[in-house]
Amino acid sequence: MFKLDARTDIAELSKALRTLGQKQLPFALALMATRLAVLVRKGELSVLRERLDRPTSTTMNSLYTKAAKKGSPEARTFFKDSWTSGVPADTYLQQVVKGGRRPHKRFEKALIAKGVMAPGQYAIPAPSSLNQFGNVPRGLIMKILSGLGAAETVSGVQANATGSKRSKRKGNADKYFAGDVDGAQGIWERRKTAFGDAVRPVFIFSESEPGYRVIVPFYKIADNIVQANRAKEFASAMDQALATAKR
């Protein structure tokens, strides 16, 4: 989250008071902060679109601006921090913005809790598991967890594969398994091919903690936009405050 406080230095404040008077000053400061926050959002989206690999519409629509008010001259530009379901953008974009090591995802925590994966391991998706956006579809995640008996750890409901006819028709328990294949530990999918039965990797377990470099220096971008546009937006806000002042 980037907070933009419209409170200004003594020189600017003195000028604004002389020009606008005490009554219109809060309006002008709030207007300046809001306009700058909108510019920050626009600039951040441009960089996200350029630097992220096939960002989803959900990701691109997750950046919001909260307008400043006369009584609270602070505007904000922030990623949405809650969804009705799934991981919010404020959480999964932290590595993109800040870099550093990646913590275990809920999927991995479920595997660890079930004993499928060791606490020090990480599940790295095979290329065949990724969709057009470079993500593992949630439906595939749930099928795997169901087949491995770890679904209730994540979903909070009984979604594991059972011996029922309905569950057997889905085939998740037969299709997915965890183990070592040719020296590689991971989660595998059983497949039938023209040449007979085969397996292919869905996730490979890694002992190395995944790390991320900073892809979008969110705060630096925001600071640069504010510095480049503050004087212009301050003057524009003062003009509008004067034009709308009651005579």
Results as ranks from 00 to 15, higher is better:
Ser85Val: 09
Lys69Asp: 11
Ala37Lys: 00
Glu189Ser: 03
Ala151Cys: 10
Lys3Trp: 11
Arg190Tyr: 08
Leu36Ala: 02
Lys42Ile: 10
Asp174Ala: 10
Phe133Ile: 08
Tyr176Asp: 04
Ser46Asp: 15
Asp197Gln: 12
Ser164Gln: 09
Ala235Phe: 06
Leu17Glu: 12
Pro55Val: 09
Gly149Leu: 03
Ala159Gln: 10
Leu4Lys: 04
Val154Arg: 07
Ala28Cys: 01
Thr91Cys: 03
Met32Asp: 01
Arg54Cys: 09
Val38Gly: 09
Asn61Thr: 12
Thr56Asn: 04
Glu108Met: 11
Lys220Glu: 14
Met1Thr: 06
Glu207Val: 04
Leu31Val: 00
Ser146Asp: 00
Lys246Pro: 01
Leu63Cys: 08
Ala184Gln: 09
Arg191Cys: 09
Arg166Tyr: 06
Ser146Trp: 01
Arg247Lys: 14
Ala151Arg: 01
Glu233His: 08
Val202Tyr: 02
Val199Cys: 05
Arg7Val: 09
Lys168Met: 11
Val87Cys: 08
Asp9Ile: 12
Ser62Glu: 03
Gly115Cys: 13
Gly115Thr: 14
Asp223Val: 02
Arg35Tyr: 05
Ser164Lys: 10
His104Pro: 08
Arg49Ala: 14
Tyr92His: 10
Leu4His: 04
Gly156Ile: 02
Glu50Gln: 13
Arg7His: 13
Arg138Phe: 10
Arg200Thr: 10
Lys15Met: 12
Ala68Gln: 00
Ser82Arg: 13
Ser236Leu: 14
Gly186Ala: 05
Val214Gln: 14
Val47Gly: 04
Lys42Glu: 15
Ala194Leu: 13
Met238Gly: 06
Leu31His: 00
Leu52Asn: 08
Lys168Ser: 04
Tyr92Trp: 11
Gly179Gln: 03
Asn224Asp: 13
Asp223Cys: 01
Lys192Met: 13
Leu140Glu: 05
Arg230Thr: 00
Ala198Asp: 14
Arg190Phe: 06
Ala37Gln: 00
Leu31Ala: 03
Arg54Gln: 15
Ser85Thr: 11
Lys170Glu: 11
Leu63Ala: 09
Leu20Lys: 09
Pro88Arg: 04
Asn172Gln: 09
Asp53His: 14
Gly171Phe: 12
Phe78Cys: 08
Trp83Gly: 02
Gly149Tyr: 08
Lys246Arg: 14
Thr244Lys: 13
Ser72Arg: 11
Leu63Thr: 02
Leu4Trp: 01
Gln121Thr: 07
Val202Ala: 00
Ile112Cys: 05
Val216Asp: 06
Gly211Ile: 07
Gly86Cys: 10
Gly115Tyr: 15
Phe27Met: 05
Phe205Trp: 06
Ala113Glu: 15
Asp5Asn: 15
Ala37Tyr: 05
Ala243Arg: 15
Ser146Gln: 06
Gly120Thr: 11
Glu74Tyr: 08
Tyr176Trp: 09
Ala159Lys: 03
Met1Cys: 07
Ala89Gly: 06
Lys70Arg: 15
Asp90Trp: 06
Val47Asn: 09
Gln121Leu: 02
Ala75Val: 02
Lys232Trp: 04
Arg51Thr: 13
Gly86Asp: 08
Ile144Glu: 03
Gly100Thr: 07
Gly43Asn: 12
Ala16His: 04
Leu4Cys: 00
Gly99Ile: 06
Ser155Thr: 15
Gly186Asp: 00
Gly43His: 06
Pro119Cys: 07
Ile225Gly: 02
Gln132Val: 09
Lys168Gly: 06
Asp174Tyr: 00
Ala28Val: 01
Ala123Cys: 11
Gln227Leu: 06
Leu17Asp: 08
Thr84Gln: 06
Arg18Leu: 10
